[in-house]
Every structure is written in C-alpha cells, then in structure tokens.
Design a protein around this nucleic acid. Structure first.
Lengths: 99, 99
DNA sequence: TGACGCTACTTTGTATCACAAAGTGCTTTT
DNA sequence: AAAAGCACTTTGTGATACAAAGTAGCGTCA
C-alpha cells in the first residue's frame, strides 16, 4: 500500500490553475478574456492564479494588440507542459488503482 | 470552448480527501492507522478530513476491536462511490481534451 | 470634449483552509 | 505503576481563495 497522491503537483490542487493549464495544453495562445469566460471566474481571481502560474514558470505572457485594443495572451512553457503531464500521469496512476 | 473543470467536485480539491477516497474505492475497509501511514499525514489532520468526508456522507466509520485493542475502520458509502466516480469521469474528460 | 467603456490588472478585505502541535480519555502492554 | 498506543479534539497559525473595488491607459460615441 502506498500513497496514491504522493506524485500530484500541489500547484494543481487549485481547480482554476488546473483548468488554465488544461486549456493551454490544447490551445497555443489564449487571451485573458477567453480564459475568464471559459473558467467563469472574476478577473481579479483569474489574474492572481495566472501570476502564480507565471511565477512558477509554467506559463508565459504576451502583451499584444488586436487592432488598437490591448490584448494579453497566455501560453504554456516547456516546464509547464512537463509539470502538467507529470501531474496527469500521477492522476492516471491514482485512477488506475481505483479501476 | 467550455469550462474544463465545471464538473469537478470541490470536496475532492483536497489531495488528502482525494487520496482517502481512492484508497477506499479499492479497499473494502481501511483502518485509521493504515490511512495515516499511507497518506503520510498527522493524525489530527487526517481525522479532520475524515470528519469532512463523513459529514458529506461519502464514507462511514466502524468502531471495532482487534483482540482487545480498539480499531476504527473506514469504508466508502454508495453516495461516496457515486461522487468519486463522477469526479474521476470529470477528470478524464478534462484530460481527454488535453490528449 | 467629456462621459463612458473596455482591458488587464492591483489592492484590500474576508472567510475558509490546511496543518502542526498539543491535549484528552481510554486501554493495553511491560 | 509507568509508558505507550489509539483515535481523536482543541487550539493556533499561516496560507489560500475569492469577491469587490480601485486603477491606468486607451477607445469610442454623442
């Protein structure tokens, strides 16, 4: 008998950070507003989780424009991809025990 | 584009509760001490999460003996099984998006 | 021109949380 | 009689999540 959750990444305990990462795994670049509407969170709340993910080196930020309007987009980093894949693997191993 | 985490159960955001549930899905009855060593947590911390799971109707408690020693064991309820399976399904759907 | 709106935050405050550590009451072992 | 184990409960602290409000810069519409 061994700890089923020992390999889970604590950063992904947060549902919002988990959701952001899973979105960024399948979408090259996603804007702040799209993330906001997808995750159904307030902008302040989302922003703070994004800062957290950025500080951990899991995502990176691009400040750009659409026409003349500011447009911030986010994308996953190599490290983020790696960490997230490992987390998913840990989840799958946990689930495998359940199956 | 839709919320990838909308169907996750908030109770299972906690890694300890998640771990306890996954252990109880595959083991009919598990003692307090076994849970404690498996999850690598302090007894107070574990106890509080067990109370939480019990209050949510996800696990049930059996106070018994081994010989003359007290022995408390925990098992999953029908409702707990259902909730946990739904959570796993939600996780798998999230992961599917990533694959 | 001036009010309003949007974007992407930051700040502030609150409530909840997880957790460790210590205490408790009962029993068993030595 | 003393020590130790079991299964907690209590207490205290620090971290977390979150909403709400504030902000700054730019755009638009009347």
């Amino acid at each position: 008998m061994k700890n089923p959750i020992g390999n889970l990444n604590k950063i992904f305990d947060s549902r919002i950070r988990l959701g952001v990462m899973s979105i960024l795994m399948v979408n090259e670049e996603v804007s702040f507003n799209d993330l906001k509407t997808m995750m159904e969170v307030t902008d302040g709340n989302l922003a703070s989780h994004l800062v957290n993910l950025e500080e951990n080196g899991f995502i990176k930020v691009h400040k750009g424009f659409i026409g003349r309007k500011t447009n911030t987009t986010y994308s996953i980093t190599k490290a983020g991809e790696k960490a997230f894949k490992e987390h998913i693997e840990a989840l799958e191993n946990m689930i495998k025990g359940v199956r």
